[in-house]
């Protein structure tokens, strides 16, 4: 499996930094997410996770450090979390953590909603 690396930017649109490492089983999405074509951006990431869970079948350590995501991005993140939960239900070893600003109550609420919607445990790491 190939790794994925996307350097984030906020020149036009807000593109998150993405670092998916197959051999290490580590995934990171960091920054802000407001994109021209949200589905087009997230689809390869979702496909990578599905391929990892179907073929590699190793432990997956997923870290989010997103400080902002717009509504269409939030749907794609929900889809990622659903796939991770499905992998976990199929005996995959999955760890999800999310670093968030402890003053950002909106983000905290969003994370609670994600956990309720997907039933996946997100380790909340305030800073």
């Amino acid at each position: 499996m190939k790794d994925i690396y996307i350097q984030g930017s906020n020149d036009v649109y807000f593109v998150p930094t993405v670092k998916f490492e197959a051999d290490k089983g580590k995934c990171l999405i960091e920054g802000e997410s407001f994109l021209a074509e949200t589905v087009k951006f997230y689809t390869p990431l979702i496909e990578w996770i599905e391929e990892f869970s179907n073929q590699k079948k190793g432990a997956l350590d997923f870290t989010f450090k997103l400080t902002y995501f717009n509504t269409s991005s939030s749907k794609c993140i929900l889809d990622i979390l659903k796939i991770l939960k499905r992998y976990e239900n199929n005996n995959g070893r999955v760890s999800v953590c999310w670093h968030y600003d402890e003053d950002d109550s909106d983000m905290r609420e969003a994370l609670d909603d994600y956990m309720n919607d997907t039933e996946i445990k997100i380790n909340l790491i305030p800073y």
Partner: peptide
Amino acid sequence: KRQERSLLPGTNDN
């Protein structure tokens, strides 16, 4: 919010 989000096709129709 959760209900509307679940209906989103992932487009910008929000």
